[in-house]
Write a protein that binds this DNA or RNA. Structure first.
Lengths: 228, 228
DNA sequence: ACCTGAACACCGTTCAAGT
DNA sequence: ACCTGAACACCGTTCAAGT
């Protein structure tokens, strides 16, 4: 298998796409240089001609995902333009469930990442935001600019047996009454306690809108970090 | 070294505290079961009597950090009580720079984590928040309940030589004009482009307050997820 | 019954030997 | 000059042999 002359020659793009597909398939924790090489029918060392090391491979994978984010829509106000763009980022992220974790682990911004951030900043500026406010607003947006929120900790799936499940829930409710109350009033189809039985998309948009509305209010009142 | 009879016997707490100290010292990426064992003067397998595996070790380390968060202050309104509590969480997190990364990587909530979340929910409820609003507000708070924000991508440190640094910055400004504008107007003491030269604590409080103000507004107008 | 050294099945990456 | 197999220095964890 090591020397099919008709094999498509490797290149950086093919390596990155294969890595993204493999991570989609087996999960990011099972993506290794070795099994990526195997997937490509190549010796592990062959990858090192196209990426310097695994960190750079992950950087490249992030670039692929960021490349899937739609361009900003024109002819609309800053708020809905940014809203749509971030929700498009979210769609890309949801297609690659490992991506948020990898984005958070990156040490440095790559050009593709910088370009996305630059473009987002430009959208606030086009909406008339001061440099000052734009700066803080970008920080406040934080990882939500990539379309994800840190999940609240998921709780383990409830036991199969209904009797023990009920007993465990009773015990749980005694220790964590507020979580239990929350869970019983919002979980519709599932028995889990927190972070399930609620609509992740709704939660994301709720938080995004709280932030965007807050930004708008500050903008309208000509907020400055150095008052008086 | 393997059998000093006067050695303090290992226990889960000692293992966890040593792990926290070692991670503080050498960084989380260098914390392994093997060098933790060595630090404790013990064979690696000895650790497995106190934690089932590395995941559980990390869970335990999070518990130690969450244990450092101050109890809620009494005799004040929900908003400043929550604000102070989250800022106390932030202080704990800042003492252990690896902690945010580990918190984000946890698969399941441990009892200590559940207790903290339960208590936070209780603080909103005590402030008169509906269960409905409390639910969404907890999601919107997200990882900020732990006192951290996902950093925007740091850019690599600028080159030493002033001439090449200036040339690189000119090139950077051409590609990313908005980031450059932002950087030149907010970076005071440092030459870096984004995420440096600005006060992280200020950014965190800015974002937290945008959220809390938004929550307050929704609460005051008796917001519901199912309108009319 | 308890402890633990050796081993297993992996990693990412280096390097020198082969062509 | 290019390629790559073997090796290096690690992992987390299993397991059986030793006490």
């Amino acid at each position: 298998m090591s020397s099919d002359p008709r094999r498509v020659p490797l290149n950086r793009d093919r390596v990155l796409r294969a890595a993204v597909a493999l991570a989609d398939d087996v999960g990011i924790e099972s993506l290794s240089m070795r099994n990526l090489a195997q997937e490509l029918g190549v010796v592990p060392m062959a990858l090192y001609k196209h990426v310097a090391n695994k960190e750079e491979l992950l950087d490249g994978m992030v670039e692929v995902i960021v490349g899937e984010i739609a361009a900003p829509v024109a002819d609309t106000d800053w708020k809905s333009a940014i809203r749509q763009r971030v929700l498009s980022a979210r769609e890309a992220l949801l297609r690659h469930r490992w991506a948020s974790q990898v984005i958070e682990s990156r040490a440095h911004a790559t050009p593709v990442v910088l370009a996305y951030m630059d473009s987002l900043i430009g959208m606030f500026r086009a909406g008339g935001f001061s440099i000052d406010l734009t700066h803080h607003v970008m920080h406040a947006l934080g990882s939500r600019m990539w379309g994800f929120t840190q999940e609240v900790f998921p709780t383990p799936p409830p036991p199969e047996d209904p009797a023990t499940r009920e007993a465990m829930f009773a015990q749980f409710a005694e220790k964590y009454p507020h979580i239990a109350e929350l869970a019983t009033t919002t979980a519709h189809d599932q028995d889990s306690s927190v972070g399930k039985g609620c609509d992740d998309q709704f939660e994301f948009e709720f938080a995004l809108d709280v932030l965007l509305d807050g930004f708008e209010r500050l903008h309208n009142q000509a907020w400055t970090s150095q008052p008086h």
